[in-house]
Simulated scan of single mutants.
Amino acid sequence: MTPRLDWLARQMQYSNTFASWIHQQFHYEYAGQPLPDWQREFAEGQDNGDWKCLIALDHDELLGGAALARADLAHRPDLGPWLACVFVTPQARGKGLAERLIEGICAQAKASGETRIYLHTQDQSDYYARRGWVMLERFRAWDKDQWLMARDL
């Protein structure tokens, strides 16, 4: 069965789990933010639009998600919205699920009247470039080289 996509705002029982996955996966970005604080911010972001998250479910099992973020890079407050928090569980990878989530976020941004969406990544620039994202610049953050990328909607 193909996993179904839904907005986390309608499935809030998964919010803390997904937020903890993101906190762990991108630990360098959250070094100064304790997990409970991030979980609260992420949950509130489902209502206030800061972290509008699309999740993938197989029956009642959470497989991953992606967020449409209002702001995701402190040194570039001029840019947005952002594709952020892209994560798929290891057992669900390799089946196109991340791509479905990313396309869902892009479709939501476009439906909201946006004409461009941004992301930053340290190690997935080739993945995104193959899917129509353009590299804008390289920068260093969290002691790591990063790519700033954009996609016209």
Rank of each mutant, 00 (worst) to 15 (best):
M1I: 02
D6M: 06
W7G: 03
L8C: 03
Y14C: 06
N16C: 07
S20I: 00
H23G: 08
Q25F: 05
F26G: 10
H27R: 11
H27K: 10
A31I: 01
G32F: 04
G32Q: 05
P34T: 05
P36N: 14
D37Y: 04
W38H: 14
E41N: 13
E41G: 09
F42A: 15
F42C: 10
A43I: 01
E44L: 11
K52W: 01
C53F: 01
C53T: 15
I55T: 01
L57H: 02
D58S: 13
L63G: 01
L63T: 05
L63Y: 01
A66H: 08
A67P: 15
A67V: 12
L68S: 10
L68N: 10
D72N: 14
L73P: 05
L73Y: 04
P77I: 03
D78V: 09
W82Y: 05
L83N: 04
L83F: 02
C85F: 09
V86M: 02
F87C: 10
V88L: 06
T89V: 12
Q91H: 10
A92M: 07
A92C: 07
K95C: 12
K95D: 00
A98G: 14
L101G: 06
E103H: 11
I105V: 15
A107I: 01
K110H: 10
A111C: 00
A111S: 14
E114A: 10
I117A: 12
L119C: 09
Y127R: 05
Y127D: 01
R130K: 14
W133T: 02
L136I: 13
E137F: 03
F139T: 02
R140L: 14
A141Y: 12
A141D: 15
W142E: 15
K144C: 14
W147V: 11
L148Y: 08
M149E: 08
M149Q: 08
R151L: 08
